[in-house]
Design a protein around this nucleic acid. Structure first.
Lengths: 209, 209
DNA sequence: CCCTGTGAATATATTCACAGCT
DNA sequence: AGCTGTGAATATATTCACAGGG
């Protein structure tokens, strides 16, 4: 139930996937499921699921499977989704706007509290109801709002500078949409999302010429 | 130089990253670099880079390093980026629009040729200069245009149906922005891009409470 | 001397297979 | 009987460390 020493990073990748699946099933009225059931849905090896879950405790019942409701609560707790996270978005271009308009964000546990841009025409205006602030003020405002996570949606050239300002403001994690490696700051966890990279991997596999 | 038997999937993940880095360096006038240099930039272990590249041939010169220009050509070839790929986008919401407006796409090697939506107000209109077509016609139009890759940017509920129509049209790869696992079709390679999943991983690592 | 390319050593992850609980 | 939890076996990936070419 509590976080152990080291859990494999591959396991961590799968937990959000499991969670999403479980949420769907519980909405359909299901109350329990076995690792085999989940393995069929996803699809993957059921031992992997059992091993993944066993790093955190013994959630299952032998002969039965896992109780959906409590498993969901447990995974949410492991992923720290049982609290609200304050986000700061930098760059209100196409991707940034899309993110601001995005309704869900995990049952309200992710809240974009700050949005920044450096375009004078944009600063002071509102996008999807959110006020756009001047990128100059990232560091003090992130401090003031105690923003925990930054989202970078600016061109590659400025991404590193923006990252530094966010970090100085005190964010502890960054989602980076810019095609620029930001792993230089060791104190912080940074995740890159890049469609060109994904497309390039795809074209390797896909070509059957 | 040619594709060998099995290259590790982890290696493949890194190739687009290397490529982007090399492209930046060559623009700055650099002509050659060692695995150690690249390892410093990225940052990572240099032996990993050498091993990654060695799966495809002996690109390097001992005592010198790699010739930037030819290494770029080689990696582009490995990833099949030395040709134009035709894409079909389904779902012209916020993400879809952002993608249509996205200028680059790897030096023009990825072209969105078709854009679909099921909103009658949208069908027939133009977004970023691209005509929006009726999602009903996905299969025949994908066939007609010989579209190779589909991008799904629709709600989760319809994602699987859209995927089926794209596959029936003949796409061989899919990028999926919907929070829905689409790995059921074995014939096809599908890559999921999901910010909520990425955020959830981040909040695991980030929490220091 | 410097850097690649690569076997050998190590670390990480997956899968098998089954003991043990319900 | 059915399913979990997990050691042991296997597969995959990373890193070390060095032979060998420029």
């Amino acid at each position: 139930m509590k976080k152990r020493k080291e859990i494999p990073k591959e396991t961590l990748k799968r937990l959000p996937l499991y969670l999403r699946c479980l949420n769907e099933l519980i909405l359909k009225g299901q109350t329990t499921l076995s690792s085999k059931d989940l393995a069929t849905i996803l699809p993957m090896n059921s031992a992997k699921i059992r091993k993944d879950l066993s790093y955190f405790g013994n959630f299952g019942k032998r002969g039965v499977g896992y109780e959906l409701k409590s498993l969901i609560v447990n995974i949410r707790e492991i992923l720290n989704l049982d609290q609200t996270w304050r986000l700061a978005l930098v760059g209100v271009g196409d991707i940034g706007s899309a993110l601001l308009s995005y309704p869900g964000f995990n049952q309200g546990c992710f809240q974009i509290e700050l949005a920044f841009d450096d375009d004078p025409d944009l600063i002071g205006s509102r996008v999807a109801g959110k006020k756009i602030r001047d990128s100059k003020d990232i560091t003090p405002l992130v401090k003031e709002f105690e923003t925990q996570i930054g989202i970078i949606a600016v061109p590659a050239e400025t991404a590193r500078d923006i990252a530094d300002r966010l970090i100085r403001g005190g964010v502890t994690g960054i989602i980076n949409f810019a095609p620029e490696v930001l792993d230089h700051n060791e104190e912080i966890k940074c995740t890159q999302i890049d469609i060109e990279t994904e497309l390039s991997k795809l074209t390797y596999y896909v070509d059957e010429t």
